[in-house]
Design a protein around this nucleic acid. Structure first.
Lengths: 341, 341
DNA sequence: ACAGGTTATGTAAAGGTTTACAGAGCATGG
DNA sequence: CCATGCTCTGTAAACCTTTACATAACCTGT
């Protein structure tokens, strides 16, 4: 039954006493083959345990039914739920998913580019703002592709993300409503568009509240926990302190909280902190983190839907989908302390 | 330059004015071809941007240079570092990595089984204790495979993991040394072998210290944060309380800490807590979590090395590799409170 | 000059599919 | 009885490689 070498279409054909063409048709266009023949073929398939060689099929067809998801960092807490959204949507349309991990390494990206060039994937989902394929990028012949989180620089690739500006606005508005005037923004970054958009939301919120430039502090940070902690350290070298920290993402916020606690401050009594993303551990912090939630599963679902559209029509209905992020109020935000109000 | 259809070996051959066989040789056995010819071919490759069609190559060769990593849960905080170990090792031997996510769903597993059956992957790394391929499992023709964390039930598949018993022993010994006598084990499970081994370490440590069965409490749990929290809730319905919680993994420990804090207790003043794994957030808990570290990158490296051995030799040097876990002392363990000692 | 050996290249088959094309069988309608 | 059309099936080419085998050119030593 389970031989050392897998059954081919020819084995099935021999047993069913038909030609290989008929077997192929019985599988992929059953209505084109007589009932009796289809029955024979199915029996032969059952006997041999035949399963069509996807590679040969893709080689012949020039396309596969796998979709490659390329991400720079699998460990990103934002990743796994989006992936589930992607998978469920793909699956219900007969596509499978494979994940490529680049670790932000162009060489690794190249590997996946070869994979794509061999038509081993019908489509591509990109988790980076840049095409991770080094200089080959420009000449690369990519399959239908969709970006997640951020537009892909090379252009022409639709993407789905979250309305970062609106999300940041919700955070800053909450802080202002609580009475904060001097609010630091932690995690400015020129490398990630999403981050600079969040900063735009910060600025817009302060503008709308008539809070002047002199009350604004923007601290560098790359979105890691460590960068949040460092930002706090830096800040305490300065003369004036904010009463609240609006962080570019949850990791940064966690770093900020660690830094503040290390100096003996209480949150939110002494300082308020907000994050962005609502990563799984946000709810388990002490205090639990007030943040902006990304609808991750929905992002995945929409991204894949867009890609599937591309795969059938050739033209996507829209080229940019921004989902609405939600404010999740927990316990890391309070009124500013009377003394420093 | 970048045409709509990718260059084939034939395009290169035409431009270089040689046969396709020569092109193939120039690429894969350069020493077999004259210098001048090799030069011509390389130029032609540069002009066309040719990259060999991995699918056609694998079809012909009956093997690919990709390795499939199948994991039930990509979001597992243990996963990403192991993956990096796997990738680095694979890469340095000319193999690429693809990840399959099963979500513990047999149907999804089947997808990847087809992938394997088509020789699209040369080897398989399995992150589950069970082959995730449903009933087809028995007849499945698998490529060389290696398990991670736990032996694969179907048998015959070598694996690399951590010495769970020894690790658990380190945790329990620490608690005993601190003076704890009544220590609860949280997260008993019959489904995961690693977990039941950790429990064996717990029992062995208590035995060695001469602490009787009457002082032992074992609480069910599936390794999630929620299960840890629930275990605490259950426990407080009982008559006697432990002074320490030894948890089957960090997630459970986090849940226990949340449960204890919710009831107003201080850690480690009122209760001590240990985890297992040393997931990234362990260090960021308040108090930071004392736990057992899994050498994740090393696990990945060893697993891949084992697989590569299998791919070349056919026979692995060893069939089971258990790495030594380390005790990481942080702040969640202290002496039991005098009143309840 | 030639047998024998070495080196470099080409020819063609094979790997497992899909599908255009052609052919066979049969029924229908005149 | 024949032309027509329909349904079902088979033949063979194509997808892009790799490689066994054959061939050709050259060199070596006699």
């Amino acid at each position: 039954m389970s031989n050392s070498t897998p059954a081919t279409i020819e084995d099935v054909a021999r047993i069913a006493n038909v030609s290989i063409a008929t077997v192929s048709r019985a599988i992929h266009m059953p209505e084109k083959v007589a009932n009796s023949t289809r029955l024979k073929v199915n029996q032969a398939i059952a006997i041999t345990g035949y399963t069509t060689n996807a590679m040969a099929r893709s080689l012949r067809l020039g396309r596969s039914n796998m979709i490659l998801v390329v991400a720079p960092d699998i460990g990103d807490p934002n990743f796994s739920n989006i992936l589930i959204g992607l998978e469920n949507e793909a699956r219900s349309h007969g596509y499978g998913i494979l994940i490529g991990h680049t670790q932000n390494d162009a060489q690794r990206g190249l590997e996946y580019l070869k994979f794509l060039n061999s038509n081993q994937a019908a489509g591509l989902i990109l988790f980076t703002g840049i095409l991770p394929f080094g200089h080959q990028t420009m000449t690369a012949r990519l399959p239908p592709s969709v970006g997640v989180f951020e537009p892909v620089f090379n252009g022409g690739i639709p993407y789905v993300g979250v309305d970062d500006i609106a999300g940041a606005r919700k955070a800053i508005d909450l802080l202002i409503t609580e009475g904060h005037r001097k609010i630091a923004f932690v995690g400015d970054s020129r490398t990630r568009l999403a981050y600079s958009r969040r900063r735009m939301g910060y600025e817009a919120g302060l503008d709308a509240a008539g809070i002047g430039q002199d009350l604004r502090i923007v601290l560098e940070g790359d979105g890691t926990i460590e960068s949040g902690r460092l930002a706090v350290e830096q800040l305490f070298m300065r003369d004036t302190l904010p009463t609240a920290f609006m962080c570019v993402n949850d990791q940064t916020a966690i770093g900020v909280m660690i830094g503040l606690k290390a100096r003996g401050y209480d949150i939110p009594e002494d300082f308020s902190v907000t994050g962005f993303d609502d990563v799984p551990q946000a709810v388990f912090m002490t205090p639990s983190l007030t943040t902006i939630r990304q609808p991750r599963t929905a992002i995945g679902k929409h991204a894949m839907a867009l890609l599937l559209e591309l795969l059938s029509d050739g033209e996507p209905a829209e080229t940019e989908i921004l989902l609405r992020p939600d404010l999740i109020v927990r316990n890391s935000v309070g009124a500013p302390p009377r003394s420093r109000r």
